[in-house]
Amino acid sequence: MPSLLQRRTAPSSEGSPPADAIVHTEGLSKIYPDGTAAVDALDLSVRRGEVFALLGPNGAGKSTTVGMLTTGVVPTVGRAWVAGIDVADRPADARRNIGVVPQRNTLDRSLTVRENLVFHGRFFGMRTANAGREADIRLEQVALAHVAGKPVDGLSGGMTHRLMIARSILHRPQVLFLDEPTTGLDPQSRLALHEIVRGLRAAGQTIVLITHDMQEADQLADRVAIIDHGHLLALNTPETLKRSVDADTVVAVTADTGPPVLAALLSKQVPGVRDVHILNDSVLLTVHGDQAVLPAIAAAVADAGIGLRDVRVEEPSLETVFIRLTGKELRD
Rank of each mutant, 00 (worst) to 15 (best):
S3T: 10
Q6H: 12
A10H: 05
G15N: 01
G15Y: 08
S16I: 04
S16T: 10
A19T: 14
D20F: 05
I22M: 10
G27H: 11
L28C: 14
L28S: 08
K30T: 11
I31H: 09
P33K: 10
T36L: 15
A38L: 15
D40H: 14
L42V: 10
D43H: 13
V46T: 06
V51C: 10
A53N: 10
A53W: 06
K62I: 11
M68C: 14
T70L: 12
T71K: 08
G72E: 15
V77R: 15
G84M: 11
I85R: 01
I85E: 05
V87C: 08
A88T: 15
D89Q: 15
R90H: 15
D93H: 13
R95F: 13
R96K: 15
G99N: 08
G99Y: 05
P102G: 09
R104P: 00
N105M: 07
S110F: 05
L111N: 01
L111Y: 03
V113I: 04
N116R: 00
F119L: 07
F123A: 14
F123H: 12
T128Y: 12
A129G: 07
A131M: 09
A131C: 12
R133S: 12
A135H: 09
R138M: 13
L139K: 05
A143C: 00
A145D: 09
H146C: 00
A148I: 10
G149M: 08
P151V: 10
L155R: 02
M159H: 05
T160E: 01
T160W: 00
R162C: 02
I165F: 03
A166F: 05
H171W: 15
Q174V: 12
L178I: 04
D179T: 03
P181I: 06
T182Y: 07
L185A: 10
D186F: 11
D186M: 10
L191P: 01
A192G: 00
A192P: 01
H194I: 03
E195I: 00
R198V: 02
A203T: 04
A203W: 02
A203G: 03
G204T: 05
V208M: 06
E216Q: 13
A217C: 08
A217T: 09
Q219R: 13
L220H: 07
A221H: 03
A221M: 05
D222K: 03
I226V: 12
I227D: 03
D228K: 06
G230L: 14
T240M: 02
R243V: 01
V245Q: 05
V245S: 02
D246A: 13
D256M: 07
D256Q: 14
V261R: 15
A263H: 14
A264C: 07
S267V: 14
Q269F: 06
Q269K: 15
V270S: 04
G272R: 08
V276W: 12
H277S: 04
I278L: 14
L279S: 00
N280E: 13
D281T: 08
S282V: 01
L285W: 09
L285D: 03
G289T: 04
G289P: 07
Q291T: 13
L294D: 08
P295C: 12
A296W: 11
I297N: 11
A300M: 13
V301N: 11
G305W: 15
I306G: 07
L308A: 11
E314G: 10
P316W: 07
T320R: 01
V321E: 02
T326L: 02
L330P: 00
R331V: 04
